[in-house]
């Protein structure tokens, strides 16, 4: 298993390098540039050339890339052309915010989605099943930002039972250790900070969870229905096993295989949804950095952000493959 993981991590390296080349070329093919964006009204061709020279954007593109790659290997992704701060430092805070939000969203999607999909399959064709299917159709169709705004309106603005935006109440004055607000509260024993962070997480993570949860419900349901028809389930029945054992050991375990793959794919889409959710809830994650970066043509920041997202995606799918191999012995051999 360790060798499998190591091999997969090595395989990810060329993927990320190719991706970095593509991003590099793509960003520079966009009209305008960081200098133009920075200068704004004060733009003149001379000033742009001068600024480009300062920022190093006047060099041939392949040289720029090699320099970028050389520095990236040592963990230096350059300085933001907007703030002048090192990109990684700038991203750090937002990264924790986005990952925390995405993590809670995918956990909600899995923890509610799998049992619901399973129940729908068990009561196939009955009311619960029909309601679930309709629910998932709605879940997939409703845009994340709309659901977010609706939740915010009802639970924060009207009912006032949950905070409308942000990650934490400023009055809490929490100590930052890892940047993950819920974890920091536990580490520093500021439990009120953790509690407050959790309250802030509820609405945005539900909004963000809606689509992956709907997809997980549907896949689980379809997969359980498939497995129920399998010969080995009939064998299990012929052995007189209790329904609990049949469900847990024989049905669910097999049904989870396609579900785990789906979870990996959904996590990739989740990052895109997070940008929208963060905007609605003023979350201050990577979403705002990304938006600003695009607007200001901040090459270093955008490069780092996209590569970061890709690395997370690769990592999550590696986790998925490992869990798949744990469930399915047929994968382990090959």
């Amino acid at each position: 298993m360790l060798r499998f993981v190591a091999r997969r991590l090595l395989q990810a390296i060329p993927t990320l390098i190719i991706l970095s080349i593509l991003i590099f070329a793509w960003l520079r093919s966009l009209p305008g540039g960081p200098a133009q964006a920075l200068l704004g009204d004060k733009w003149t061709p001379e000033k742009e050339a001068q600024l480009n020279a300062t920022l190093g954007f006047d060099q041939p593109i392949w040289l720029q890339y090699l320099k970028f790659l050389g520095r990236a290997i040592t963990g230096d992704f350059g300085n933001s052309s907007v703030s002048g701060l090192p990109v990684l430092q700038e991203i750090g805070q937002g990264f924790a915010a986005t990952i925390e939000l995405s993590f809670f969203a995918i956990v909600i999607a899995i923890v509610l989605g799998i049992p619901l999909g399973y129940l729908a399959a068990r009561f196939h064709g009955r009311l619960l099943d029909n309601l679930t299917v309709i629910g998932t159709l709605v879940g997939v169709a409703v845009p994340v930002f709309f659901l977010g705004a609706l939740l915010k309106f009802v639970f924060a603005d009207e009912l006032g039972i949950l905070p409308p935006s942000g990650r934490q109440d400023v009055t809490i004055n929490a100590t930052t250790v890892t940047g993950f607000a819920t974890v920091d509260g536990l580490l520093t024993r500021e439990f009120d900070a953790t509690w407050d962070a959790l309250l802030h997480l509820i609405l945005p993570s539900i909004a963000l969870a809606s689509i992956p949860m709907a997809v997980i419900v549907r896949i689980t349901r379809a997969s359980v229905l498939d497995v129920l028809d399998e010969d080995f389930v009939r064998t299990a029945e012929s052995k007189g096993l209790t329904t609990q054992v049949i469900r847990r050991r024989h049905v669910l375990r097999n049904a989870l295989l396609p579900v785990s793959t789906t979870i990996g794919l959904q996590t990739g889409l989740l990052l895109a949804g997070a940008v929208l959710t963060e905007k609605v809830f003023n979350w201050g994650g990577l979403g705002s950095l990304l938006a600003e970066g695009i607007e200001r043509k901040d090459y270093p920041r955008l490069q780092a952000l996209i590569l970061l997202a890709a690395s997370v995606y690769v990592l999550v799918n590696l986790l998925v493959d490992v869990s798949y191999a744990i469930i399915d012995p047929r994968v382990r051999v090959s």
Binding site: F232, T235, N254, R330
Partner: peptide, 19 residues
């Protein structure tokens, strides 16, 4: 079932749980 009455099925591969 499984105690008083046992059953063997046609296709041994699909009749065993693969995982």
């Amino acid at each position: 079932r499984g105690k008083d009455l046992g059953m063997v099925f046609q296709d041994p591969l699909s009749s065993l749980n693969p995982v």
